[in-house]
Amino acid sequence: MTMKALGSALSPMEETIEAIILDAPLFNGGRGMVYAPVSGGISNENWRVKNTDGPGDWFVKVPGNGTELFINRAAAIDASKKAAAAGLGPKVHDDLGDRGVEINDFLPGHRASNHGDFADLETCKTTVRAYRILHGLPELVLTKTIFDMIDEHVDQVRDLGAPMYKDSDWILLNTAIARDAMTASGFDLVPSFNDPMPGNFMIGPDGSIMLIDYEYASMNDRCYDFGIWFGEMFFSRERELALIEEYFGEVRQETVSRVIVHKALADVKWCLWSMVQLKVSRLAFDFHKYGMWKKMRARSIMEHPDWPTHLRRL
């Protein structure tokens, strides 16, 4: 990773991080500070800042353009601090928190996971234990179920004039049916991560796991965390059942169905999110391709003959 000195900015994003380094008291007016981008995120502009004159190594998250539409930064910092207090996430610094900028201690001894790491059952079980800690955190300040997320994005797509996939009416009808079924059965609200991209699981040298990036965290249904995680990692049905048993102590059909329904709903949310990002983001990422893939997978679950059965079991 090549670090740059202050005053060498060549792009608007580099100009933004240099201004933040100068403004944050933690960075001592920029003296001795160097910076470099951290790749992997598709919401924000992420940076590493180091002090060449002494100790200090930080991860700086600069809110991505337009992300205030769907990210509550105060709630994200609240969740990050509660996770850090439980030993689940890195230390959070308050500098510029009022501007939505989040500064954490960098984790040089950890590495971001990848999909291949989750082929290992023990890594998955360690992650389940991390989720158990997360779900036991003090109540978060933000309650936002998957249906709240979907409603928010539907309104944003319309307001922004963002593209809408051709079969949106059919998918949103099935989403409404799932909402009725889930509401009738009741929500099991717990502090939820809601964003299990592989890069958000940091693996330590001892195999332990810390979670980073709590910007989508909220009080949400417990099974949503498993639905979105299982979908993100492309687990086999056998692996999914093993992890459900690891967390819940048994495999109940209603739990399996609840996870599967949430898997489909997660893909609906992220498809809509991608359409919003097409209009507002300045990141170099193919949001249209990402969103269409999410949409097709949601449809594959909703079109399956077992979909009505899963809804009845909720």
Results as ranks from 00 to 15, higher is better:
Tyr131Lys: 12
Thr123Ile: 10
Ala181Phe: 10
His153Phe: 11
Gly161Tyr: 03
Phe147Trp: 01
Asp117Glu: 12
Asp180Ala: 13
Asn114Arg: 14
Asp148Gly: 03
Pro108Ala: 06
His115Glu: 14
Asp120Phe: 08
Gln156Val: 06
Arg158His: 13
Asn114Met: 12
Glu139Lys: 15
Asp105Val: 02
Tyr165Trp: 08
Ala181Asn: 05
Lys125Trp: 03
Arg132Leu: 08
Tyr131Pro: 00
Pro108Gln: 04
Gly161Ser: 05
Phe106Gln: 03
Ile103Pro: 00
Arg179Leu: 08
Asp148Cys: 04
Tyr165Leu: 06
Thr183Gln: 14
Leu121Cys: 09
Lys144Gln: 14
Phe147Ser: 00
Ile171Pro: 01
Leu134Gly: 08
Ile146Trp: 00
Asp155Gln: 15
Leu137His: 05
His110Asn: 14
Lys166Ser: 10
Arg158Asp: 11
Ala130Pro: 13
Thr126Val: 15
His153Asp: 06
Ala176Ser: 15
Ile150Ser: 01
Ile171Thr: 10
Val157Ile: 08
Leu140Gln: 02
Ile171Asp: 04
Asp155His: 10
Ala181Cys: 10
Asp148His: 12
Lys125Cys: 08
Ser168Lys: 04
Thr123Leu: 09
Leu172Ile: 05
Trp170Asn: 07
Asp105Glu: 04
Gly116Val: 13
Leu134Asn: 07
Phe118Pro: 09
Tyr131Thr: 05
Met164Glu: 05
Thr126Pro: 01
Ser113His: 06
Phe147Ala: 00
Asp148Thr: 07
Ile146Cys: 05
Tyr131Ile: 06
Asp169Tyr: 05
Asp148Ile: 03
Pro163Lys: 01
Ala112Ile: 03
Leu107Trp: 01
Asp120Arg: 07
Ser168Gly: 02
Ala112Glu: 13
Phe147Thr: 00
Val154Arg: 14
Thr143Trp: 02
Gly116Phe: 14
Thr126Ala: 15
Phe147Ile: 01
Asp117Val: 07
Thr123Lys: 09
Gly109Pro: 04
Ala162Val: 03
Asp117Asn: 13
Asp117Ile: 09
His153Met: 09
Ser168Met: 04
Thr123Arg: 11
Val128Tyr: 03
Met182Asn: 09
Ser113Gln: 03
Val157His: 02
Leu160Glu: 00
